[in-house]
């Protein structure tokens, strides 16, 4: 198992390096002088330009520039924002936490909704409840998340006024920030008003975000449960007269590994779908930050944002794989390769 884990870790490091190369080269694809692109200096003379260039190492070979970029990035230095004139890392921190809060809420929601429905569908395999579930799943992953978000705003916010149309918390809630996750902050400071406001803001974006992942979760879990139910050990358990709850617990345990993998893969689209959703709900996360930076041509922020988002995706995949290895005794004992 240790070997598998180490291999996986090494692979992650390689992928992270590759991600950094892509992100570094990406911004070099922009036509124009890097001085203008990175420093946003409006009017500079040729001497100033040359000075800036050597000051920031833009006159050195590209491989040296990459080395410098990587060395700085590892230390958390991602350059300065052109429009806001603060270090990029200062902008990324709170935005990252906002995205994390949304993604956690979305994931929890998918599990809470998806697992019972998948169980129900698998129990009623081939009958109406099952067919309705499959149709729902198909609808779920065909739904453009941003449209779902807008439709919920239209009906539930604009017309019924049940939820705010966007943002993360009411300004008047007076929340003290500690962790950056507003729900957690509200709970530890005992600010019930802020908790209510934060949750109210969280409802619509997390439902929209959860739609697609719930659909895949339902499909995969249902599929594995059905195939497991045809395996011999289930018949054996049944023959021993085990009750339904115990039986389903055994089956869920076996269906967990593939489901975790799919949820891990889906996490990427969750983060991705989040980019567009954050724009819809004015949710001040990484996605909104990146899109705003693209519009303002603030490339250091775009670069930093893409890097952080891709890196967190890679790390989440690692965590998911580790969970998978721990959950599946066959891999744990090194019997089955991947």
């Amino acid at each position: 198992m240790l070997q598998t884990l180490l291999d996986r870790l090494l692979q992650t490091v390689v992928v992270l390096l590759f991600v950094s190369v892509i992100v570094f080269l990406l911004v070099r694809l922009i036509p124009g002088d890097p001085v203008d692109i990175f420093l946003g200096e409006a009017t500079v003379s040729d001497e100033q330009r040359a000075m800036l260039r050597s000051e920031h190492g833009l006159d050195r070979p590209i491989i040296v520039q990459y080395g410098a970029f990587l060395a700085k990035a590892v230390q958390g230095d991602l350059g300065r924002s052109i429009t806001q004139r603060v270090p990029v890392a200062e902008l990324l921190g709170p935005a990252f936490l906002a995205t994390i809060e949304l993604v956690i809420a979305g994931t929890l929601l998918s599990v809470v909704v998806g697992v019972p429905i998948a169980l129900l569908a698998a129990m009623r395999h081939g009958r109406t409840a099952d067919q309705v579930t499959s149709a729902l799943a198909l609808f779920g992953y065909s739904m453009p998340t941003f449209w779902l978000g807008i439709m919920m705003i239209l009906v539930l916010s604009v017309h019924l006024g049940w939820f705010p149309t966007g943002g993360r918390i009411a300004m008047s809630a007076g929340l003290e920030r500690h962790t950056g996750l507003f729900v957690v902050d509200a709970i530890i400071t005992g600010n019930m008003r802020a908790l209510g406001s934060a949750l109210q803001h969280l409802v619509l974006p997390s439902i929209a975000l959860a739609a697609v992942s719930t659909a895949s979760l339902m499909q995969v879990l249902r599929g594995s449960l059905i195939s497991i139910s045809q395996e011999e050990f289930v018949s054996a358990l049944r023959a021993r007269g085990l009750g339904r709850p115990t039986l389903w617990r055994h089956m869920l345990r076996n269906a967990a590994p593939p489901t975790v993998i799919i949820m891990g893969v889906r996490f990427g689209s969750l983060i991705g779908g989040g980019i567009v959703l954050e724009t819809v709900f004015s949710w001040p996360g990484l996605g909104l930050l990146i899109i705003d930076a693209i519009r303002a041509r603030d490339y250091p922020v775009v670069q930093g944002g893409v890097l952080v988002m891709a890196a967190s995706f890679v790390i989440v995949s690692l965590v998911v794989d580790v969970i998978h290895i721990l959950l599946d005794p066959r891999i744990r004992q090194g019997e089955a390769g991947r």
Partner: peptide, 18 residues
């Protein structure tokens, strides 16, 4: 594999952005 490590839409957005 490394390429697939990027969330699909992030890569598309990043490329159109540049």
């Amino acid at each position: 594999d490394a390429w697939l490590a990027f969330p699909f839409i992030l890569l598309a957005i990043a490329f159109v952005a540049v």
